[in-house]
Amino acid sequence: MQAMSKPTVHSTPARIIHWAMALLIWSLIFAGLSMVQSLQTWQVELLAIHKSFGVVALLLVIWRLIIRLTHEQPELPKDLAPSQKRIAHLSHVLLYVAMFAMPISGYLMQNAAGRPIEFFGLFTLPAIIPVNLSAYGFFRETHSWIAWGLVALVVLHIAAALHHGLIRKDSVLQSMLGKTKD
């Protein structure tokens, strides 16, 4: 039977990229929130690091989507209510949308401002839209709203994961920790 062949844990590449991006996304969010208000001397370097790692995040989420589409996912527990399954599915779709929209809106807002995006000082990425104040206004605000949406989604995601791991004690949290729930 097909269901029997479903994996019980996420694949190793999926787990590595999940935890790496968790660390990266939190770092980028904290860097972003502090650098937009700080007038301190480190602000300039933090902005440069934020942009470079933002490009890394875009590359990683592309790779992650490929992993997601090419590796079989563990199934959700059978006793989970259909409505909860739908919410779980929707929240993952939204997480992917936000993970793409964050670096893309950041990239485009820099283009619209006519500011270069350097990758760790190694090379400069091309601008794909022209300089435009109104477009900057749109992408700058979008970048901020998606950041808050992503924070909300990640907090919900963590709460749900802990609920699965500590309250329901099912296979969901275990599958990302790489442990088989027996």
Binding site: S38, T41, Q43, L47, L133, Y136, G137, R140
Partner: peptide
């Protein structure tokens, strides 16, 4: 390259905030 002059460093974030506000107003 930028020196470590604290005023120079602060100009960047302050200009960015002013730019953000007028860009939002222009977009809207």
């Amino acid at each position: 390259a930028a020196t470590a002059d604290p005023i120079l460093r602060a100009r960047s974030a302050a200009y960015a905030e002013s730019y953000r506000r007028r860009a939002r107003e222009t977009f809207l």
